[in-house]
Each structure stands twice: as structure tokens, then as C-alpha cells.
Design a protein around this nucleic acid. Sequence first.
DNA 1: TATTGTTATACTCTATAACTATA
DNA 2: TATAGTTATAGAGTATAACAATA
Lengths: 173, 173
Amino acid sequence: MPAESSEPREAREPGAPPRPDLLAVLPRITRLGAAVSRGRLVERAAEDAGLGRDRSAVGVLVTLRTAGEPLRIGEIADRMQVVGPHITRQVQLLEKRDLVRRVPDPYDARARLIELTDAGAEAVDRYLASLLGWFTDTLADWPRQDRDDLVRLLSRFADDVTTRLAETDGEEN
Amino acid sequence: MPAESSEPREAREPGAPPRPDLLAVLPRITRLGAAVSRGRLVERAAEDAGLGRDRSAVGVLVTLRTAGEPLRIGEIADRMQVVGPHITRQVQLLEKRDLVRRVPDPYDARARLIELTDAGAEAVDRYLASLLGWFTDTLADWPRQDRDDLVRLLSRFADDVTTRLAETDGEEN
DNA sequence: TATTGTTATACTCTATAACTATA
DNA sequence: TATAGTTATAGAGTATAACAATA
């Protein structure tokens, strides 16, 4: 690993050329995002799990599954970073397919809690097993240390970016 | 690989069961992707650089910039992983704004090469400096070793996933 | 006949606006 | 009056189909 010398941060003026390694990462990340979000991997995992082709609806199920408890419409929307009406429609479709159900919120009669049915929980578990299995297989040849480092650093990176992004977006108004 | 395709999917039996830390990474990555792709960070960087709000068009400019040379419509589409007609329209819009121009392809009269104008090159450089600067700032507090590891591992991960995804998508047809 | 690109059209995902019911 | 959710509508981004020109 060549520990090339580069100057510490903060020496960044507008218009200054970005670091070459960052510039090289950008197209890779973009391609990765496009391949996963528009490619057939996710779609096929969803179909194999009996979830059909609706990516947004799958997102709702995964959100409920990782939450581990019933959530309100607004909470799902927040976690998925989309607006409420979008979730309303997805939940309606999922309800028709008996993958989720609505139960009253004991603390607020305006709201309903969205809950996975048994069928929904089983389907989303099959989906996650398939998808995560694919990534596990992809990383199978990596040294354990590298895998652990990737998971650790990527998690921290995602958290840092999300946090800073929320601040940045907020202070603009 | 003649690949008996009666059971190509769901080839996930032995190997490695999905690890819990992977399950924890998934929502983070999803949120990161949503925040970057739908949030205001990219949009604002593009506006500051004088590129307007059109994300796809910005993608075309970045693709040309990182390629370092004029590209054909089909080549841009391949690199962005979208279909040709989409690029045709983006390039038409960019041409109207004098950010790119078309020049004849000396080797094939059917094709044109798409080339950044000076104005286009300057704008995309401002955009990239702004965007990458934001990420550099976000990583500013990280230990040097962690930053280097992240860039290295994330690049390799993106390459591995993209490669394997291309194989997987391909063998399905 | 195959390939490059364009035109026209349709679909998916998500947002905004206006509204209802409860707090 | 403010909040949770719904209905209806609009927009951005991308795909598919049919076609033109050149190889």
C-alpha cells in the first residue's frame, strides 16, 4: 500500500482540482449504484422471494423488517426518505397482497401501524437472504480483514455522510 | 461455461449464511444512496457550477470529463448504463446550452463524437471540485489510514460487484 | 444484413397540492 | 390550529418500438 504523501485536508479552494483517487472512485460508485438500482439483481431476488417487481414496495417491507416492529406511515416515509403519499400507495398495494396489514395505533386514532403479515415476513426474509447471499458470495474471496474493514468503514461513511447531509440540507432553509 | 440454467438462481445453499453485520449495513447504504441521489447535495453543486438541475445531463458531462476524450453516443450510454435514446436527448439539451458539441467520427460516418466545449469543461470541473470537496470535508476528521482503506476497499468492491453483476445479468439470457 | 443513432411513446418512481379526520 | 394520512395530479428519469442512415 503506497502511503503517498498528500497534504492535509482544508487546503481546498474552489476550483482546485480534487484528489485523483477520489476522482477515480466517483465513476465506480456511480456505476455500482446504477447497476444495483437499475440492474436485475434486486429485481430477481424479489421475484424469487415472491415479491414481484415493485422496488418501492420491497423497500417498505425491508424497512419494516429491519425496524423489527410495526411502523406508522410517516415513520416509514422518513426512514425511506420519501414523502408520505408515496408510502400510502405502496402500503395499499402490499395490503391487497396480504404482505402487510394495518392495525390501530393505540396512542393516536389518526394513525395506523403497518405490520408485516406472516407471509410478508417470510417473503422479505427470503429476499434478504438471497440478496445478502449474493454479496457474501461476491466477497467470498476477500481476506477476512478486508471484508471486516469494508463493512466497518462503509457503515461509518454512510452514517457520516447522512448526518452531514441532513445538516447541510437543513441549514439551507 | 455452458451453465446448465435449470437452477442458476437461488444458488445459495451452503457457502456462507448472511452475516448480521451485513444486514445492518443494508439500510445504511440504502439511505446513503437515497440521500445522495435525491437530496440536494448534487443538485446544489450542479447549480453552483452553472449546470442547472438536470442530473442526467450532469452525468453525461462527468462521463465525458472522466473519459478525457470525446465519446460516441453509444459509448456514453454504455458507461452510464442507460439506453441510447436517453443520451441522445441529454446531448441535444447540452448542445443547445453550448456545453458539448458534436464532431464527425473520422472512422464511421454514422456516428458523431460528443466533445466538451471549453465552457462545458470548466463547468464540470467546478461541479466536481465542489462535490468531491464536500466528501473530502466529510472525511476530514478520519484517520488517514481509514480514509485510504475506505477508498481502496470501496473501489475494489464496486469493481467486483459490477463485474459479477455483468456476468450474472448476462447468463440469464 | 448489422449497427449507430433518432423520434415518438410509455412506464416507474417520486413529488406537490388539496383535502379529511383526529389531536 | 397543527398533525397523520389520503386522493388526485404532475414531473423527472428511463425504457421500448419503429425508423433512418451508414457499414
